[in-house]
Design a protein around this nucleic acid. Structure first.
Length: 361
DNA sequence: AACAACCCCGTCAATAGATC
DNA sequence: GATCTATTGACGGGGTTGTT
């Protein structure tokens, strides 16, 4: 945490140091004065230590809402790298540049697992606070427990800021997001390095969870089989198998609570077969909608510009992506041209918006 | 009715590490 | 060595819901 400072228009009070290496590189201590910039005008980053801060440095600082910053200047002291998880006291393990808590039952990890699952499935309504409450109240101690909340509504209602309406919304969200493809299921588990892309690749080879679990029995064969998939190497294969194996019971439990649906095999049907798109700037429709239209035609939507990108779909006031695309010679198109590419399918391919007003009255 | 708490979204770059 | 995936991170605005 830093004393509030205005950087390119916003008040910054928090900024990450990422890992131990970064702290060492900067040679930083608590109580130092630092220079903060915002990468891409968004994420704050400390780029330099400017020596010790003084009381005078803190004069006249305000939070973003205008209220004064009253915190004292902390005594100068070294940053102590933790050796134990601040939450569960488990000894931390070094994982590359990072320190990790390896206790699968660590409450912090459970909360993150829940949040990750919900975000991946676009299950709205569970944020940090609720996740924390669900866990600490004992209502939820595994992902599968989320799907048991309907049986424990009374207890659910006893949580903070949780009354009838919120509870019903939550239960409905849970119910509505029960169906998913196997690759969704796998990627939403949040196993390290197993994201949507890798999960999809795996599902092109392994068709059911049962099959995957059976593979655990013959480890070497399993690795061999997975490594045959293009872009999957030994490391990822082992991470997947370990990840599943470590959580086997709870994954099976969770699996029994949800519904696996067939993935769209027709995914590459369409006019945009295999073309990649990146969307930037302000457009006339929500990004999500545009992305869906593109995908419906077999196109792929990525979040960053690289030399391999086929099209940058650019709206108004697009920033650095535009610049990068120009530099790399990526074709830049507007919404009109995208519509042309989509072949007028644009209106039929997007899912119906929620008809909550007109239809119901 | 006013206020407070919470959640979601949009914004984007920079890592580290894996794979080929 | 080039290219890709996955992940993280901070803030403010806007919407919804709960509480006073």
């Amino acid at each position: 945490r830093i004393a509030p400072v205005i950087v390119s228009g916003v008040t910054v009070e928090n900024t990450t140091l990422h890992n131990k290496g970064e702290v060492e590189r900067l040679g930083m201590s608590i109580g130092d004065k630092v220079r903060v910039v915002r990468r891409g005008d968004v994420i704050p980053k400390i780029i330099e230590v400017l020596g010790r801060a003084t009381v005078g440095d803190l004069k006249g600082r305000t939070h973003s809402d205008g209220s004064p910053f009253n915190q004292e200047l902390p005594e100068a002291s070294e940053i102590i790298v933790p050796t134990k998880c601040p939450r569960c006291e488990t000894t931390l393990a070094v994982d590359g540049a990072f320190l990790k808590c390896i206790n699968l039952d660590c409450p912090s990890r459970l909360e993150r697992t829940i949040l990750y699952w919900c975000r991946k499935l676009e299950l709205d309504g569970i944020g940090e606070k609720l996740a924390e409450q669900l866990c600490s109240s004992g209502l939820v101690s595994s992902l599968a427990d989320l799907y048991r909340l309907d049986e424990r509504k009374r207890e659910l209602l006893s949580l903070d800021r949780m009354a009838e309406k919120s509870a019903n919304n939550l239960l409905k969200e849970l119910e509505n997001s029960k169906s998913m493809t196997l690759s969704m299921f796998i990627s939403a588990l949040g196993l390290p390095r197993i994201g949507p892309e890798i999960a999809t690749l795996i599902c092109s080879e392994v068709e059911t969870l049962e099959e995957l679990i059976d593979m655990l029995q013959h480890r070497e064969e399993a690795v061999e089989r997975l490594v045959k998939i293009d872009r999957i190497g030994e490391v990822v294969a082992n991470l997947l198998l370990d990840g599943i194996s470590d959580r086997k019971e709870s994954i099976i439990d969770l699996y029994s609570k949800i519904i696996i649906v067939e993935g769209r095999k027709t995914i590459s049907q369409g006019t945009l077969n295999g073309e990649t798109f990146c969307i930037t700037g302000t457009l006339s429709r929500p990004r999500k909608e545009i992305a869906l239209s593109i995908k419906a035609q077999g196109g792929k939507v990525v979040s960053s510009v690289s030399g391999n990108l086929d099209f940058l779909v650019s709206g108004d006031s697009s920033g650095s992506k535009m610049e990068k695309a120009t530099r790399l010679g990526v074709k830049i198109i507007g919404e009109d041209q995208l519509d042309d590419l989509l072949g007028g399918g644009i209106l039929t391919d997007i899912p119906k918006p929620r008809q909550s007003t007109l239809g119901e009255f």
